[in-house]
Design a protein around this nucleic acid. Structure first.
Lengths: 335, 335
DNA sequence: TCAAGGGAGTAATACGTATTAGTACGGTCG
DNA sequence: CGACCGTACTAATACGTATTACTCCCTTGA
């Protein structure tokens, strides 16, 4: 009825609990054991239906086959577009490695929940902004962590797997330049996060190279009405570049603004997203690039797993994945 | 550098580790303590930056604010439609209750992974079919579990939260009967699961009440071509009823078959789904009902939480939630 | 002056596994 | 015949917290 412990097996097999532990642990410490005893123990374990208690194992200093996932940004449903594909990748790779996942729900009420991550062998972090102090503590304690998305905080000591937004964004600008665009409006998130900063750097450097003028606008979308758009066009702007955001609000605002202003894309103005438009938007395929979220999730799990179980070759703690361009239909040559 | 333990606090505050544990645990066992000592301990804990070790707590006590989620059906991405909303509900309610989630990845390789669920205080189960033996073990051991979706196995002893498919399906048939339909083709999953069986029962009983003839067809969708559909119509069938499935394959097949046969809905034939069509299907709003998945997730978590921490009123271990009807535009009166 | 009683805190132990230092036994060799 | 060695296993302990039974001391009342 009650759980079967190593002690029970020991009694049945006529050995000590320690021996059972050694046998079941595969005897990695090289204890001398006769084959007969080994088999007796294994057989008893089998017969009794032994299952190791992961908590005890963990306490006794081994690891757990458990990887944590900590999401800072709370609202799960609203940002399904952005986070779900990552989680799918994480889940798939974890399953492939035979690890379970523990999802820490970031209730704003208890910021120190982050310490609970220690239940796992290591933890993935995920979100636009990172609680630097807590992360620093974990890092200092030697707890394996990997951030999904590039991180520059703490002097770049946070291991991470990110997307190469710089190159991908630059490539979008280059495409516009090739199509003859010279005046571009660039709409980005109001707050600073590496994913936004990287995009802006890519945009600026490509713009400089191509001799293209880019006006950067920080917005949450609320001020993007038809009037604003008309004003820009009157100003000589021929293309709009929109950052992909968690909620898709900025893109949605632009999209509706364009429709309200009766501006046709790409005939009257070209449009590109630094990423993909939110799901459910009807209309032409918008030019931009794909963020390889599934792959990000997978790569992050692999990196974390290697940090948890070091030995076979230390990988670089930083990786950037390439974002494949999406040609789309919303960039037209300037006439 | 190393972690701060209760023992460290004890040393600083000049008390014993036991006292620290009592103070930090809120002294629920009613040990006599002076206010001064209490404050000294709390202050020391604060100053040293103490954080409890969840592994140890779990080993010593037996409850960790951890709920497990075990999904039998492996393919996460393909069935996002069906499972994701449930998980969203689970996540939201767990966060509200301050519980974390362990997601057990059902790698088909190791069926005994299910035992790992014991890491959590209790576990949610999710999937069309259930590994009865393993569940029975957990149940027998007194481990709190809740299945999402109605379960009849083990003499109904599996606590669950499900949707009332019987009533909802009956209501759909009643709607068809009121519209004058008399001959209906009903397409359901080939395998038996409670969610399918319940729908069929609802369909059959409503059909009997309304004097309506229903031919039940078990299919995975592969045989639903234009020819089959044409044959049915020639037979005098005026309405099709399709079960909602995990992958949406059956509905997709019907949808394409109708188009291929150039049959117009609802002019030539009425169509209803026992649930909702898969996401991404263009066209009119299909008549049917909504499965309250978010609510299912939330209710399941609440039930599990109450099983984990019994005391304040034992709720019924079985709950069925109502599925709100969706009128839609695909049921027309028979002419 | 002694018993009774209560206040304050602690020693001891449990939880289940992993590791390490050690024991016991038999054989071999010089 | 004792020193030495290899084999096969176990005793003891650590991990960090929660609980329970217990001790010690001080006050009060007869």
């Amino acid at each position: 009825m009650g759980r079967v412990r190593q002690a029970d097996i020991a009694r049945v097999a006529g050995v000590s609990q320690a021996t059972v532990s050694v046998v079941l642990g595969g005897n990695r410490t090289g204890v001398r054991l006769s084959e007969r005893t080994r088999l007796r123990v294994l057989e008893a374990a089998e017969r009794l239906g032994y299952v190791p208690d992961p908590v005890s194992s963990r306490l006794a200093a081994a690891n757990n086959n458990l990887l944590g996932v900590y999401t800072f940004t709370p609202a799960f449903p609203d940002i399904a577009d952005v986070y779900y594909p990552i989680l799918v990748g994480v889940e798939a790779e974890a399953a492939a490695l035979g690890k379970d996942l523990i999802m820490f729900t970031a209730s704003s009420a208890a910021p120190d929940r982050i310490r609970r991550t220690r239940l796992a062998d290591g933890c993935l972090f995920l979100g636009r902004h990172v609680p630097v102090d807590a992360i620093a503590d974990l890092l200092a304690a030697g707890f394996p962590i990997v951030h999904i998305g590039r991180r520059t905080e703490l002097g770049g000591r946070i291991p991470h797997v990110g997307a190469d937004y710089v190159s991908a964004s630059a490539e979008v600008i280059t495409r516009l330049a090739r199509a003859g665009h010279r005046r571009v409006r660039y709409l980005r998130e109001p707050d600073d996060a590496p994913s936004s900063g990287d995009r802006e750097r890519g945009v600026r450097s490509a713009a400089a190279d191509a001799g293209l003028s880019v006006a950067v606008v920080r917005t949450d979308g609320s001020d993007l009405d038809a009037a604003a758009i008309t004003r820009w066009l009157d100003d000589g702007v021929t293309a709009l570049v929109v950052e992909e955001t968690d909620t898709g609000a900025v893109f949605q605002a632009i999209w509706q603004g364009l429709r309200a202003a009766e501006v046709s894309v790409p005939d009257d103005v070209s449009l590109a997203v630094l990423g993909r438009p939110p799901a459910g938007v009807e209309g032409p395929v918008v030019s931009g690039f794909e963020v390889p979220r599934r792959a990000l999730g997978r790569a992050a799990v692999r990196l974390l797993a290697s940090l948890v179980a070091p030995g076979t070759g230390e990988p670089s703690p930083h990786r950037l994945l390439t974002c494949p361009p999406v040609a789309g239909e919303t960039i037209a040559p300037v006439t």
